[in-house]
Design a protein around this nucleic acid. Sequence first.
DNA 1: AAATTATGCAACCGCGCGTGC
DNA 2: GGCACGCGCGGTTGCATAATT
Length: 333
Amino acid sequence: MMRTPSNDESGLKKGPWSPEEDKILMDFIQKHGHGSWRALPKLAGLNRCGKSCRLRWTNYLRPDIKRGKFSDEEEKLIINLHAVLGNKWAAIASHLPGRTDNEIKNFWNTHLKKKLLQMGLDPMTHRPRTDHLSLLSNLQQILAAAKIVSSFTNPCDINNALRLQSDATQLAKLQLLQNMFQVSNSDPLNPFGSLNSLPDALVNDVLGLNNLSNLQNLYDGTSLGFSSQIQANNFQNFEAPQEPTQHMNGGRNSGCKESEKLDEQFGSTTSNSSLPNLVCASPERSAEKMVNSKECSTSFELTWGDLMDEEPTETYWKGFIDQHSNQAWSTVP
DNA sequence: AAATTATGCAACCGCGCGTGC
DNA sequence: GGCACGCGCGGTTGCATAATT
């Protein structure tokens, strides 16, 4: 966590502050105020640059600094403020007494950003993400939630639990298929670019013939017998997007009869209002951006990179979807 | 138990803005 | 107007620690 102390070319110390230095700085500022930061280190007898002193004071030594975990209220406030202000950390910090911009920035980058991503929201726009990565994220969420649900199911009822897992996997696969299919014609990433409709054969091949009747319950959690707290914790990520999203009957697939067939076949899983809306794939996001993006997990970069290099077949997609379904299971704690 | 990888966060860097000369 | 300076901000780095393999 600490850097090895070092000196720059002017001989001034860099790196972590020692307790002695902290004391000198605190004593000096409490007695004299900081005044000119540039002049301060000399006056205080510190072998540091003024900037280093200022940072140490504002981010760590200031007496009004609140340390420790961010409360739920603070967390919500940060998210809301970030939605309005963007990465204006100082502006955000001004609304959270005792918190520094640096602390908030770190908290955002290490926790909140991930949280929003997991919720399928773009951390920059705070809107539903509309790319395939988001889709995979949703897929993993669904599978993870299903596994958690299973763990809270009566252990005597293993068959029930296994069926639930299986159904959730099926739904996740269906979602992934549908979302991949609904990308616009102009999207170079569209894996179904050469197809006019989602082939029944592929749907059947990927999904098999499992009964999806439990999936409605999986989403609303009303009949599964676990506590409301668990529901809140594990299903909050399935909230419907706040803005109208492109469903299968929008975009390039307007009036797509295949979606209606799917609705009939699976009890209207694609259009029932109590199920989460599908997020649409983003045509503006290039393959290169995705592959280079730090948001990508390594495994997915490779998979997606491979994907872009070849014309995907239906068999390929079946394998792809199966692989990621399995990965999602294995990542659940 | 050791090696490897991921995570969290303090501290640094560089840019841009405001101010004074 | 142009320059120098001081400061604040956002982005990034580096490393200790935790988690995983």
